[in-house]
């Protein structure tokens, strides 16, 4: 691997011109006598969409939860927005938590509140706003994520899977966070909805200037919206960088992932598409 931004089994090279928003160093996480993360290193840069891939049960969700502080760590450091998360006091922690938004895999909407109340929850608890403005902002967020106003007064149990994801994304964006964690945002959606959701994330990311940390299995999402991809295996980030460098990697797991039956079909299709684009336009007489 010659690309400077991609390394195998080591810390990513510092890129001085870009702001690092999450920096994980030598992270060790385990449960009981099982160690899941064995000295994991990862950097997320400001303004990028990082796709995070890994086999089922490799601990993608555990890493997300460790960064969020939901899982105790055994070693290493996690710096977010340049602050060491473990060194923060409770007040600073809360201030930090208001700067990120999280979309949980199953939405995790509060089932006793309507969609609108769900979105207003973080605003109500941490900001002093008039009910009128909160209503407007909640409706605006709903519209941004592509939900109509008729969804606003529904309860989560009355929503379809895709609507739950959108509503949960609206809640994650309620406070206009700088950093958004998405845990498998397109899982359980049909290809059309998934593509729309990808596009939505892309649009919002550009509009709001978000940094997106996205755990995903969806190869389409990786191709369409991720600026950089990090791959997790054997408790470490085995490679990170633009998708092309990961595709070119000869790590056995990466080869199986991207050039296996499903991944292979997709990358072949993408390559064909690109070839067609390269063809000169037919000349008209």
């Amino acid at each position: 691997m010659t690309n400077s931004s991609t390394t195998l089994n080591g810390a990513p090279q510092p890129r001085p011109n870009r702001d690092i928003i999450i920096s994980v160093r030598d992270l060790v996480v385990g449960f009981g006598d099982k160690t899941i993360m064995k000295g994991l290193n990862l950097d997320v840069y400001r303004g990028e969409v990082l796709g995070f891939v890994g086999g089922s049960g490799q601990g993608k969700s555990v890493l997300t939860r460790a960064i969020l502080g939901l899982v105790p760590t055994r070693g290493g450091s996690i710096r977010i927005f340049g602050q060491d998360r473990d060194a923060l006091g409770p007040i600073e922690r809360r201030a930090l938590e208001q700067r990120w938004g999280v979309l949980f895999q199953n939405g995790a909407l509060f089932s006793g509140l309507t969609v609108k109340q769900n979105i207003q929850m973080p605003m109500r608890e941490t900001r002093e706003l008039s009910q009128h403005l909160m209503d407007e902002l909640a409706m605006l967020k709903l519209e941004l994520v592509g939900l109509g106003s008729d969804a606003a007064d529904k309860f989560p149990s009355e929503l379809s899977g895709g609507m739950v994801k959108r509503a949960a994304l609206a809640r994650a964006l309620a406070l206009d966070p700088e950093l958004v964690f998405l845990d498998e945002p397109t899982s359980g959606l049909d290809p059309i909805s998934a593509a729309e959701f990808d596009e939505l994330i892309g649009t919002l990311q550009q509009t709001l200037g978000l940094t997106v940390f996205m755990v995903t299995h969806d190869l389409d999402s990786l191709y369409s919206i991720c600026d950089r991809v990090a791959a997790l295996a054997e408790g470490r980030v085995i490679a990170s960088g633009p998708l092309e460098t990961l595709l070119a990697s000869d790590h056995p797991w990466l080869r199986a992932y991207f050039h296996g039956v499903r991944g292979g079909r997709l990358s072949a299709a993408r390559v064909e598409q690109k070839d067609e684009e390269w063809k000169p336009a037919p000349t008209t007489p």
Binding site: M123, R127, E128, L129, S130, L133, L175, D176
Partner: peptide, 9 residues
Amino acid sequence: TLVASQHLE
């Protein structure tokens, strides 16, 4: 930004 809450409004 929303951080200013009431002040912003």
